[in-house]
């Protein structure tokens, strides 16, 4: 684990090994919609990237592609040096819509990945209470203490989103795919959770792809921001973010931060 550089340079020191690589990838749905066209993207291990772009441009589709949930129509997706042909098992994913299972309590929903993913699945029965404590702890961090026994349909939209985030994180995935994880939250809760996510990233250094509509969120959290064109999505701009970490809400009021957000905004508007 490299120590977070106090002032990261635009060009990172030694190039970190790649975790994922998209090479001129296109993606098409069965209905014929071309969601992505000729997208290329390198994702270094431990990197935090943000994807922004207009609605319907193919951001969620990109996550489905990298996780192996949907095959590429052309081009290659590589994760860990292996071409992706089926769903990979190193990722934690928070979907855009609530996908909590309605027959499970919040706690059991958060525990779900541990019942599936490799080392945990075998120890689940034996270490159940330990794992439950872990789930409770992470639910507490996002402010859901006391809701462990509630069912998803008893939670508000924002609470469901936070529970989904916990489910994505619980098994310490090496690759974290977050699809607008804070979209349904009020500004204050959202900013609190930026801090939580940043801290988690600094502690464990997973590789993160964050899809968001919030340019401040992207600038606050990411190393690199990719701007997508309208559908079919292509990368039209790529910006490194150099603010030292840990970033704070104060950072977001710095002149250069405001400038960055402004620049991003014009890039999206122009396409």
């Amino acid at each position: 684990m490299s120590k977070p550089a106090l002032i990261a340079k635009a060009a990172p020191e030694a190039p970190r090994p790649l975790l994922a690589k998209l090479d001129r990838v296109s993606m098409q749905y069965a209905s014929g919609t071309l969601a992505l066209s000729e997208t290329s993207l390198d994702l270094a291990q431990g990197e935090f990237i943000a994807i922004v772009g207009p609605s319907g441009c193919g951001k969620s589709s990109l996550l489905k592609l990298i996780s192996g949930l949907h095959p590429a129509a052309s081009g290659t997706v590589t994760v860990d040096g292996q071409p992706v042909t089926k769903p990979i098992d190193i990722c934690g994913m928070a979907f855009q819509n609530s996908t909590l299972l309605p027959w499970r309590t919040t706690l059991d929903n958060v525990l779900l990945p541990l019942e599936i993913v490799a080392p945990h699945a075998r120890q689940m029965r034996r270490n159940r209470s330990e794992y439950e404590d872990r789930a409770r702890a992470i639910l507490k961090i996002v402010g859901l203490e006391g809701f462990e026994r509630k069912y998803p349909w008893e939670l508000s939209g924002g609470m469901q989103q936070r529970a989904s985030l916990c489910r994505a994180l619980i098994h310490d995935p090496r690759l974290l795919l977050l699809d607008e994880p804070f979209g349904a939250l009020d500004a204050f809760t959202r900013e609190d959770l930026w801090e939580v996510l940043q801290q988690l990233w600094l502690d464990k250094r997973p590789t993160v792809i964050l899809v968001t509509h919030d340019l401040r969120e992207a600038a606050y959290l990411a190393d690199t921001i990719y701007v997508f064109s309208p559908r079919p999505g292509r990368i039209v701009a790529q910006t490194s973010v150099d603010f030292p970490r840990p970033r704070t809400i104060d950072t977001t009021y710095r002149a250069d931060f405001v400038d960055l957000v402004h620049t991003l905004r014009t890039k999206i508007a122009r396409h």
């Binding site: 769903p87 994913m93 299972l101």
Partner: peptide
């Protein structure tokens, strides 16, 4: 399919 994807994404 979204619910199935939750598990597929974990490599189930």
């Amino acid at each position: 399919p979204e619910l199935q994807d939750v598990l597929r994404a974990l490599g189930a």
